[in-house]
């Protein structure tokens, strides 16, 4: 009987997240990050005349670098609070999860702390990437071999 009251009251007072507002913020932030990325890529390709593959790599490096520095300075967590998915879906989020875990664990020393815990959050991304690419890659490979 008590648990019914609890369920009822908890259901009534459910936390309503401002989904639309959050999503728009994520859209804006993620969009701006990608826009800046595209600008960097264009400049590299048009002004410095680099190959598009190299330009992509340099662009990713720039974002990974900036994200790690911002994480270290304690800015990225504040951005992330506002931007939500806009901060963790771009590659900057990957760098952030690596750097934040590394910085947090540094008090346990370099080997047992930083190096051991660096992939605490980012490990899932690499693992799923490898697993799904082997799985889906095998299917694509077989299909292409079959039709070739």
């Amino acid at each position: 009987m008590e648990s019914e009251v609890f369920q009822k009251v908890l259901e009534k007072n459910k936390n309503r997240r401002p989904i639309l507002k959050n999503s728009l913020k994520a859209f804006l932030f993620g969009g701006i990050v990608c826009l800046l990325g595209e600008v960097i890529r264009m400049i590299l390709m048009k002004v410095f005349k680099v190959d598009s593959r190299v330009a992509n790599t340099i662009m990713l490096f720039v974002f990974i670098f900036l994200s790690s520095i911002f994480t270290g300075l304690g800015i990225y967590d504040k951005l992330g609070q506002v931007a939500g998915a806009g901060a963790f879906i771009p590659i900057t989020g990957f760098a952030n999860s690596l750097t934040s875990s590394a910085i947090e664990s540094k008090t346990e020393g370099i080997i047992q702390g930083t190096l051991t815990n660096m992939f605490k959050l980012a490990g899932a991304i690499i693992a799923i990437g490898a697993i799904s690419s082997i799985f889906i890659g095998s299917i694509i490979y077989m299909v292409r071999c079959f039709y070739a």
């Binding site: 990608c34 826009l35 890529r41 662009m59």
Partner: peptide
């Protein structure tokens, strides 16, 4: 361009 390169899906 970067709109598809930067999000984590491009990783996969």
């Amino acid at each position: 361009g970067a709109g598809a390169l930067l999000p984590i899906c491009s990783f996969g």
